[in-house]
Amino acid sequence: MNKNEKINKSQNRIIAFSIFTITMMLTIIPFPEFIVHYMPDWGLMALIFLSINLPKEFNLSTAFFVGLITDVIKGAILGQHTLSSLIIIFTTTKYHLQLRSFTKIQLLANILLLSILYHFILFWVNGVAGVSSSLESYWGPIIGNFIAWPIISEILSKYFIYNTPRKEV
């Protein structure tokens, strides 16, 4: 039992590492201009998924590092994406049991609210720092997240090994 757990943990870690690598690559890839506003926050989506389903292994420290890397990739002020992902991941980790028991639609509505909060914090930091941003770049990713979440969570739930029995809805 114990041995199995260890194997699971290290396997999960490898899977998580490769998933974060892929999300960071998706963040770097330049997309065509008409779709670029609507790109979901890949890193945030992966973080939310992990913090709900494997909150013991992946919580705030993962969020901190992923946020920091996103800051460097996007050329933002250091700490901007870090702060907003920390706040989102804190709530999802804290209430992961409730979030797990939600139906898919309820969870999706929560993801929508959380990504509005995420972008509000980014927007607020931009405003304080005097960086200009457009309305589209504020709403676009929220719509992108809303569309991408069901797909991302469906794909990710296939790859991880869960120690805790997950509630099927």
Binding site: L83, L86, F90, L97, V125, T164
Partner: peptide
């Protein structure tokens, strides 16, 4: 089945202060 995450709030405060410092 009910994994408790140790020291979540203090960790959160620590990281938030760190990122505010960076900002």
């Amino acid at each position: 089945s009910r994994p408790r995450i140790p020291a979540l709030t203090s960790k959160f405060l620590f990281f938030v202060i760190l990122s505010a410092f960076m900002l």
